[in-house]
Design a protein around this nucleic acid. Structure first.
Length: 590
RNA sequence: GGGGUCAUGGUGUAGCCUGGUCUAACACGCUGCCCUGUCAAGGCAGAGACCGCGGGUUCAAAUCCCGUUGACCCCGCCA
């Protein structure tokens, strides 16, 4: 037997008891003819003492380096007065070793296995097994486990079945590039790894499963980011005979449980909801961070008669003027110039502003009539020292530009500090609902699905598909948490005829439609029930819960920004025999 | 595809702008000794990098220039 106790479980109640522990040696010291080391396992840390009178244990302790794996037999003792270490949860007791057995040695470490080490990520990934030994990383993985288990428990209790869908599946021309796997048995053909289990979970609804879930891996061959990996895990859910609110309720129940069990936080449900159109007008983003109250204002009416062409003519021709007002006393002119460049880089023509000093300062003030200045003061509720930035343009453009500015203010510490922006709450959930069904793709010169080709349009807005497709709203919803898109889902088209009509509007002729979506379309024709679902990004959820900036830190074995794995050295070349079997000839320079 | 930051002993950094004083510094770690109920120990001694790689400028380059590779961040992309 290697152990009968774990390090984290030792308390003063166990004083006098004999225990066997196993773990890694950490923070070793010899003092006063006595050897001390901290023994660490997954559950925590305990201090082991080897006294000279236990000659065997004493000698063994002498020979130990850091990260040696040892088993310790000994007695739990209360610590001598005044020797508690408040940093350790187990500070009340120590273990007096009678026997120490070396289970395995350890080479000199490439970096310290401690939370405050900051080895560069490449090194951490190369020695991931050491990196993961750090309490913080172990904590990340065990919280990830706790979230998975809580999700499973809630969904199981709600009558969901966990079903696996294929990893080797068929390429469908959805949003992202596919990862392809060559077929040996059918030369010249390829499987694709799923970008999501979307089609299969809908088919399960046609099968009458009614409630499906899966902790599903999804693969997308696109460039990586701090919050994007080539493979990520989603809590994938699909339900039959439901409306949006039913899906929302399940997710809320699940997250309520997750937050209570992992953080001890009691979330208020239901979460607030806001239409896409409103959230875009008020925050200029479909995933605003609502921990902060800062919102945009519409001041189009102030300028409807304006002689200032940029503002007045835009409003008169159906555009809008939006405003974002902040406490700007500390903002310098050169910072405003930098912000202007920043916003121009996002596609705006400029970034007009007014500094509300006495008198107000602004390059464009001379174009405003006194009535317009008064109108602004009234509608924006100006205080001295404020700065108002303006967005001007058609549709959502003016909001989006200021939404980008809002995000910059909130996320760039230089500004959030200076502007006195503080989160009003720690957790801000928001359901964003009624996304547009379609969006115009300038590159392809056609309408394409805004989110998901299978999302159902809002009833009654179907006629607009022929006349004004961009105005058709859908049953697509996202769940946003603290400015992060945490989940995305929709009520689907359960009628094949409607699904076909939407696809044809996007330019698919019947043959192409059948080739790419026949799998699902055929199934829909056999009495598919109304259904809908959602997928939550597990990696993002765990990262937020743990306060990690990158999802790499909550994934055991993540990829680098170039999609490589320093630990396994994947991807790698393969031997010619394998390629031959797969009927593949390489065309790679070098 | 584009923009940016970084690359110095085992680890983390400083030095680089203003080239020579860098035979490269500091902290942690490592080795040895001393002391010590210690756990952010203390003292002494020591080993360890030619400054990612390649080229150039110069009497002289870690330091300037060009290229390249890699890591990270962002835009595009990611239904």
């Amino acid at each position: 037997m290697y152990r009968d106790h774990s390090c984290g479980g030792l308390t003063a109640d166990l004083a006098g008891r004999s225990v066997i522990l196993a773990g890694w040696v950490h923070a070793k010291r010899d003092h006063g003819g006595v050897y001390f080391f901290n023994l660490r396992d997954r559950t925590g840390v305990v201090q082991v003492v080897a006294h000279p009178e236990q000659a065997e244990a004493f000698q063994a302790a002498q020979g130990l380096g850091l990260e040696f794996v040892v088993a310790v037999s000994g007695t739990v003792e209360r610590r001598p007065e005044g020797t508690e270490n408040p940093k350790l949860a187990t500070g009340a007791v120590e273990v007096r070793a009678s026997r120490i057995t070396l289970l395995n040695a350890c080479k000199a470490l490439p970096f310290m296995v401690e939370d405050d080490v900051n080895a560069n990520e490449e090194t951490r990934l190369k020695y991931r097994y050491l990196d993961l030994r750090r309490p913080r990383m172990l904590g990340n993985l065990s919280l990830r486990h706790a979230v998975s288990m809580a999700a499973r428990r809630v969904l199981d209790a709600e009558g969901f079945l966990e079903i696996e869908t294929p990893i080797l599946t068929k390429a469908t021309p959805e949003g992202a590039r596919d990862y392809l796997v060559p077929s040996r048995l059918t030369p010249g053909t390829f499987y694709a790894l799923p970008q999501s289990p979307q089609i299969f979970k809908q088919i399960l609804m046609v099968s009458g499963l009614e409630r499906y879930f899966q902790l599903a891996r999804a693969f997308r061959d696109e460039d990586l980011r701090a919050d994007r990996q080539p493979e990520h895990t989603q809590i994938d859910i699909e339900m039959s005979f439901v409306e949006e609110s039913d899906v929302h309720a399940v997710v809320e129940k699940m997250l309520k449980t997750v937050f209570r069990e992992t953080l001890g936080v009691d979330l208020a449900t239901p979460f607030p909801r806001m239409d896409y159109a409103e959230v875009m007008r008020r925050y200029g983003s479909d995933k605003p961070d609502l921990r902060y109250d800062l919102a945009l204002s519409d001041c189009s009416e102030v300028f409807r008669q304006s002689k200032f062409k940029v503002f007045g003519e835009t409003v008169r021709s159906g555009g809008r003027v939006t405003a974002l007002t902040v406490e700007g006393t500390g903002v310098t002119r050169s910072e405003i110039d930098r912000l202007t460049d920043f916003i121009k880089a996002q596609g705006a023509k400029g970034l007009p502003w007014v500094r509300w000093n006495d008198p107000p300062e602004s390059p464009i003030l001379k174009f405003f009539s006194p009535e317009e200045v008064d109108g602004l003061r009234r509608s924006l509720g100006i205080a001295k020292g404020n700065i108002t930035f303006f967005g001007v343009g058609e549709g959502y453009a003016p909001s989006v530009h200021l939404g980008t500015l809002r995000k910059e203010f909130l996320t760039n510490p230089d500004f959030s500090e200076k502007l006195g922006l503080r989160p009003a709450k720690p957790w801000a959930f928001l359901w964003v609902t009624h996304f547009p069904l379609l969006e115009w793709s300038p590159e392809e010169n056609r309408w394409t699905f805004a989110h998901n080709p299978f999302t159902a349009p809002i009833e009654g807005e179907l006629p607009k598909l022929d006349t004004d497709p961009g105005q058709v709203r859908s049953h697509q919803y996202d769940l946003v948490l603290n400015g992060v898109e945490l989940a995305s889902g929709s009520i689907r088209n359960h009628r094949g005829d409607i699904q076909r009509k939407i696809l044809s509007l996007m330019g698919y002729d019947p043959r192409e439609m059948d080739r790419q979506f026949g799998l699902l379309l055929n199934a829909l024709d056999f009495g598919a029930p109304p259904h809908g679902g959602i997928a939550l990004g597990l990696d993002r959820l765990v990262a937020i819960l743990r306060g990690e900036d990158s999802i790499r830190d909550v994934i055991a074995f993540p990829k680098t920004a170039k999609g490589t794995c320093p630990l396994s050295e994947a991807p790698s070349t393969v031997n010619p025999k394998q390629l031959k079997e797969l009927h593949i000839k390489l065309d790679v320079a070098g």
